[in-house]
Design a protein around this nucleic acid. Structure first.
Lengths: 242, 242, 242, 242
DNA sequence: CATGAATGAGGGTTCATTCAT
DNA sequence: CATGAATGAACCCTCATTCAT
C-alpha cells in the first residue's frame, strides 16, 4: 500500500514541519518580548545599570530563560540597538535617498529623526541613554547622516571644512535633543530651529537653510510590528495594570 | 597659681589650636588626594564602574577611611565634578567677562574650554564620561555659556531664535568634542572649525564668525595646585611606578 | 464481515507486532548511543562535572529525549557502570572459573583486568574517575575478585589473614593502576610487577608468585558490540570529525 | 620637650602595633575557622560538591566574608589539604627519620598514618574523599613514603623492582584503608595485617615483615592547636548544639 | 517517543557600606 | 580620624529537569 506509505511520510513531514514552525514562532516571540522589555527598561535606567532582573520580571519569565537568548547584559543591549537602528533605517533611508543633494539629505534625515523622537519619547530616552562613544555613531542611522555630511563637504555643497567638527556638532545636537525631548515638552518651533541652526553651522546661507527646513517631508508612520510600537503597547498595558 | 594656670591654659589653647589647624590641613590633604584619584579612575572607567576599590588603592588608604570623607560613591563624583567646575570657572569667567559682547563671550568661553580639553585629555575623558542628562549642563561652566547664549539671543546679537535649540547644539558639540579629543588626535584646525561652525549656527555671518575665532584669546595656564594638575602629576608617578 | 474483520485484525496485529519490534530496536539503539556518549564524557570529565549537555550534543539528540531513557544523571552513570561491569564479567568470569585454585583465579582476574585497562585507556580513565566508596567494590568484577581472595584466605591458600586488609590492597592497587594507566605510558613490566607484588602481599612465596604471573592467560578480545568498543569507535569518529 | 615628643611617638607606635597585632590575630582566627569548617564539610561531601554555602553557614559568617580569604572553592580545599599535610609532616617526618633503614621508615610512616586515621575518622573521611589523581600523591606525606619506597628499591632492601607498581600498591592501600576506616569499625588486627601485607608486597620476608610491624613505634599525639583537633572540637559543639 | 523552550533552584561573586578596634 | 575585617544585598550564571507540542 504505497499510497498509505506516502501519506504516512507526508503526515510525518507535515507534522515535523508544523512542529518546527511552531517552535520557531514561539522562540521568535519570546525573543521579541525580551527586546521590548529591554528597550523599556533600558530607556528608563540607562546602560551599566543591572537590567536583567527588571527585564525578566517585566517579561514575566524565568531567570534561566533569559540566557537561552542572550548571554550577557551587553549582548541584549546590542540586540536592542541593532533592532531599533535597523527598523529606522528601513524606513528612513529610502526616503532620504530620493534626493541627490546632500543638503536635502541631511535636512531630511535629521528632521525626520527628530520628529520621530518627538513623537516617541521612549525613543528619545533610549537614545539619550546611550553612551556617545560606544554605540553612538552607529545608532539610528548616524552613520548615514555622517555619510551625507561628508559628501556635502567633499562636493563643497557646505562651506564647512573640517568634517569631524561638523559631525561632532550634528551628532552632539541629536543626542542633546534626544535628552531634551525625552525630558520636557518643547516649543513647536524647537525642531525647525534646531535643524535650521545645524544647516547654518554647515555653512549654508540663511535663505537656503530656511528653504530646506520648509521642504514638505513625508510623515513617517512606524509599522505596528516594529519594536518601538510593540514596546509602547506593552508599556501602556503595564501602566494600566500597575 | 593663677599665672601658671593661665599660662597652661594659654599653652593648651595654643596647642589645641595648633592641633586643630594641623588636623584640618591633613584632612584637606587627604580629601584632595581622594579627589585626584577619583578623577583619574572615573576618567578611565566611566560611570557605573566600581571605583571605590581603585580609588583607595591608588590613594593608598584604607577602605574605611574613604567614608570619613564621602558618604557615598556618588558624593565623591559630585565633589569631583564640583571641584573641576569651580576651578574652571575661577579661571575662565573673569576672562570671559572682559568683553560685554555675547558673541565674544561665547566664542571665548567655548574656545578656551576646547583648548584646555585638547591640552588635557584627562579632562576630556572625564567630561565625556558624564551622562549628559545628569550633570551635563552644570559642568565646566556650561551654565555660563548658556547665560551668554541666551543674552545674545535676547539682544538679537544672534539670528537664532529658539534658545533651547541653540544650547543643545553648543552643549552637544562640546560633549562630542570631549569624546573626540579624549580618544583621537585631531587636526590642528579641528577646534577653530568647530567653533566657527557653532558661531554660524548661532546665526552670525561667516565674516564675523571668522573674525571672532581669530581673536587673540589669552593662553590659559592652570594653577599647579588645581585638581587637574595634581591629578596629572599623580598619574605620571603611577605610570612611572607601574 | 467477520472475515474481513478478522483479517484486518490479523494484519493489524502483525503490523502492531512489527511496529513494536522496530520500536524496541530503535529504543535500544538510542539507549546504547547514550551509554556510549556518557562513558566517553564521564571518562573525560569525571564525576561532579555537568555532563548531560555534552552527552546529548555528542549523541546528537534533543535535551528532552534524554529523559525518555534515564530519569536522572545518576541513573545514567549507574547504567554505564553496570553495563561495563556486566560485559566484563561475561567475558572474564568463565575464564577465571576454569581453575579452582583461588591463587590462580586472583592472578588471572587481576592480570586480565589490568591488561585490558592497558589496552583501553578509556576504561582506565572511567574506572579512575569513580569514587572508590560509592561504586568501587561493585565495579568490573571487584566483587568476584573479592570472592576469590576470601576463598583463598579461608582455605589457607594465602598466608594473609585479615580479609579486609588484603582486599583493600588489591582494590586500591587496581584503582591506582587505573589512574596510572590512563595518564601515562608505563614500562612493560609494570603490570607483571604489580601483580607479583599483590601475590606477595597475599602471602604467596616468591617462587609461586612468579610462576602464577607467568601462566599463559588467554588474550582477551572484546566483542565489537561491547559498549567499550562502540564507544571507542565513536570517539575516533569524533576525533576525525573535529 | 623632646621627651614628650618621643613618648608620643612611642605611644603611637605601640598603638599602631597593637592594632596591627589585633587585626592580624582576628584575621588568622577567621581563616582558621573557615579551614575547620571546610575540613568538616569536605570530609562529609567530597570534592566537587558545592561547599561554600555549607562552610559559611557552619562558620556562622556572611557570604562575602568567605571571599576575603579564598577566591574559589578549590583554593579553599587546597588550603585545607596543605594545612593537614603540613601538620602531619611536622609530626611524622622527624620520627620517620630516626631510622635510616627504608624498610623501617616505610613501616613507621605507614603504620603511624594508619593509626592516626583510625583514631580520627574525620581524617580518614577527608583523605578518602580526595580524588586520587589530583592531590593524592602530595597528600599527608605520600611523597615522603614514596621517597622511602624508592630508596628501599634502589638499595635492594626490597625485592620489588618496578617502583611505580609498588607505589601504586602502597598509595592505593592507604586510600582504600581511609575509606574503610571512615565507614566501618574494623577488627583490631586490620592495621597490622594491612601493613604486614604491604611489607610482603615489597618483597620482605615474612619474618622481617612481622618483626617490623611489631616495632614499638611511638604513640602520636596531635597538637591541640592542630587543624584536625580544632575541627573535631567544633564538630562536637555542633553535634551538641544541633 | 522526539523535541527544545521554559523553568528555577542552586550556586557563584562583587562591592558599597558598616563598625569595632 | 585611620584601619581593614565583616557584612549582605544585589547580581550573575548554570544546568538538571519538566512539559507542551
Amino acid at each position: 500500500m504505497p499510497r498509505w506509505g506516502r501519506k504516512d511520510m507526508a503526515n510525518k513531514d507535515l507534522l515535523q514541519d508544523h512542529r518546527t514552525r511552531v517552535g520557531t514562532e514561539r522562540r521568535e516571540k519570546t525573543r521579541a518580548r525580551l527586546l521590548e522589555c529591554a528597550l523599556l527598561v533600558f530607556a528608563e535606567k540607562g546602560p551599566g545599570a543591572p537590567i536583567i532582573d527588571d527585564v525578566i520580571t517585566l517579561a514575566g519569565m524565568a531567570r534561566g530563560s533569559f540566557y537561552n537568548y542572550f548571554r550577557t547584559n551587553e549582548e541584549l543591549l546590542d540586540a536592542v540597538a541593532a533592532e531599533v537602528t535597523d527598523e529606522w533605517l528601513r524606513v528612513i533611508d529610502p526616503i532620504v535617498r530620493l534626493d541627490e543633494d546632500p543638503a536635502v539629505r541631511v535636512t531630511c534625515g535629521t528632521m525626520l529623526l527628530l520628529r520621530v523622537m518627538r513623537s516617541y519619547p521612549l525613543l528619545s530616552a533610549f537614545l539619550s541613554r546611550m553612551q556617545i562613544p560606544s554605540a553612538g555613531r552607529e545608532l539610528l542611522g548616524m552613520r548615514y547622516l555622517t555619510r551625507d555630511v561628508l559628501a556635502g563637504i567633499e562636493r563643497q555643497r557646505f562651506a564647512a571644512r573640517q568634517p569631524r567638527a561638523v559631525i561632532d556638532i550634528v551628532v552632539g545636537a541629536i543626542f542633546c535633543a534626544a535628552r531634551s525631548l525625552s525630558q520636557e515638552v518643547l516649543p513647536d518651533d524647537y525642531l525647525d530651529d534646531l535643524v535650521l541652526a545645524l544647516l547654518r553651522s554647515l555653512g549654508l546661507t540663511e535663505d537656503e537653510a530656511v528653504r530646506l527646513v520648509a521642504l514638505p517631508f513625508p510623515e513617517i508612520e512606524l509599522d505596528d510590528q516594529s519594536l518601538l510600537k510593540r514596546t509602547l503597547e506593552r508599556a501602556e498595558h503595564r501602566g494600566a495594570g500597575a
